[in-house]
């Protein structure tokens, strides 16, 4: 009986430790979010969102950085989505497991692990200098597209895999070619999954700082073309905080950044559920 008591004591101690780990994870999350939001939200005002930064960001708002964030994200998504979904379709529907698919999968796995600063260096030397696009929305967007590509490929492939084999069989049996089967019987059903990947890509683009600072510059002027440099909210936040320009504005920008990412996630989930409900 003594031995059993000891064993159950161990079990209870372990249980307590595991609960503590879970609680502290939740606690840390709450601490970070609450700290930034509680200091940041009081800074919010219509002018904070609608005015562009003045005197390095000490005064004014963050309008131009919002524009910058949206512009870069749009370019990144527009470039990465067709590439990513196309690659996933090729892997999922057009090859059997073999040498080609293994090489591609390995390459994508490696690309997924490349640190963002490397994407930044690459974007800088390839898009900014070699292709002579300068610090611009285009350079930044393309570098971000490269960075989010593996995410979009992997989620799209998972989504395709989840479509039952029988759908393919039905489509072929009705005289569909491979491409017709993919576009009419498979893709429409895989859209929720593909969309999830795109949202992940959007969030990563919004958050990213290292890539953007090296490829899109940090201009505070509202861009007028794809070749204009921009500053995103993340970069603005980083510069404000690191160079100690204005803690108040930094908190405000940080809070806006967190809320934006949460907002994108929530809206995405909501739209997705509606789409799924509509088809079922």
């Amino acid at each position: 009986m003594r031995i059993n008591r000891k064993r159950y004591l161990t079990q209870n101690v372990a249980k307590i430790l595991i609960w503590m780990a879970a609680l502290s994870t939740m606690g840390v999350m709450a601490l970070i979010i609450l700290q930034v939001l509680s200091e940041g939200i009081p800074v919010f005002s219509p002018r904070f969102f609608l005015d562009s930064p003045r005197s390095m960001g000490r005064e004014g708002g963050i309008f131009s950085t919002i524009i910058g964030t949206i512009a870069l994200t749009v370019v990144a998504i527009v470039v990465a989505t067709p590439l990513g979904v196309g690659t996933a379709i090729f892997l999922g529907e057009y090859t059997r497991e073999g040498r080609i698919s293994r090489v591609i999968r390995f390459g994508i796995g490696c690309l997924a692990g490349v640190p963002s600063i490397i994407f930044g260096l690459f974007g800088f030397v390839f898009f900014v200098i070699y292709l002579n696009m300068g610090w611009s929305i285009l350079s930044g967007g393309l570098a971000l597209a490269a960075m989010i590509l593996p995410t979009i490929i992997c989620t799209a492939e998972e989504a395709l895999k989840a479509i039952p084999y029988s759908f393919r069989e039905v489509s072929y049996s009705l005289g569909g070619t491979k491409w017709e089967t993919v576009t009419r019987a498979i893709l429409p059903n895989a859209i929720p999954g593909i969309f999830t990947g795109i949202i992940l890509g959007v969030c990563r683009s919004i958050e990213e700082t290292a890539v953007v600072i090296l490829t899109a510059g940090s201009s505070l002027i509202i861009p007028t073309s794809l070749f204009a440099p921009v500053r995103t909210m993340s970069v603005h936040f980083y510069i404000l905080a690191r160079e100690g320009i204005s803690m108040e504005m930094a908190y405000g920008t940080g809070a806006a950044l967190i809320l934006l990412v949460l907002f994108v996630n929530i809206v995405a989930n909501w739209r997705l559920n509606r789409y799924i409900r509509k088809r079922a």
Binding site: M26, V28, M29, I32, V36, E207, Y238, I258
Partner: peptide, 22 residues
């Protein structure tokens, strides 16, 4: 709760982590 906490953690931009640390 833990799952959504982890999701939020994964979504916090790294500059915010740096700032909070600072």
């Amino acid at each position: 709760i833990l799952r959504s906490a982890i999701q939020v953690l994964a979504g916090i931009p790294s500059v915010i982590y740096g700032f909070w640390g600072l």
